[in-house]
Amino acid sequence: MNAVAISLASEAVGSVGGFEIRNTMLMAWLAMGVLFLLAFCIRRTGYRLMPGRFQALIELVVSGLYDLFASIVQDDRMARKFFPLTASIFIFIIIGNWMGILPGVGSITIQGMHEGYMQAIPLFRSMNADVNMTLAIAVFAIASVQFFGVWALGFRSYGSKFVAAPWKHPIQMFVGSLEMVGELSRIVSFTFRLFGNIFAGEVLLLVISYLVPYLAPVPFLAMELFVGLIQGLVFALLTAVFLKIAITEHEAHADHDGHDMGTAAPSF
């Protein structure tokens, strides 16, 4: 029986013009391919007022997600702006997570160099078991949060959340610096929550499959399906919550302008 090899970093399975193609990247492309195929199919059948079964299924998912995110944002117009981002995060993460437990993922290997050694490396690996993927989504999400914050409140108003004149508002300046650290910590928490859960699930499945190859992994596979769903939901919901916070005028600014605090709706 071969020893179990566990690597935190994803493995390169090839390179094109000096650009390393990693096994997690292959999985991300496969997940994107699946989603593009679905989009192509629904586009081909067309959107009808009287939907068929396939369209009804797509509508069920899209409208369900929209209602969920709209209930968080509580502003239909803004919810429509955020929806592509939050829904894509949710769908991409759960498709990636679920595809990560398909047979062949992790078990189909090729010979390649990894960490200076020639070894058998998996051709496919769950896309979210790579920090590059989770970090990319986290950076994209938090950058979008900042963008929508500036877009909704204006640069000065949104920036005043982080920066204040130390001679006028020393406490505000301190709180602002904490806010800035908080924004960065969101990236870190997003990244490592998703990566940690999925990587831990992979390791768990690998160990269980190594110890008891038959039947024993089945409950853990079911649990990984559930974890994959929950992680996608948590990532997307937190993004929606951060977006809602970003477009809401913060207390200091509202006080300064003599408006209501906290929950004032943005005007465009």
């Binding site: 994803s10 990247m25 991300a28 994107m32 989009a39 899209v62 929806f83 592509p84 981002l85 894509s88």
Partner: peptide, 25 residues
Amino acid sequence: ALIAQMVNFSILIFVLAKFVYKPVL
């Protein structure tokens, strides 16, 4: 890899928004 994944994700959002979310909504 990080930038590539961000680009991939951006393309995914664009395609899904254009061909799925907007028409469905």
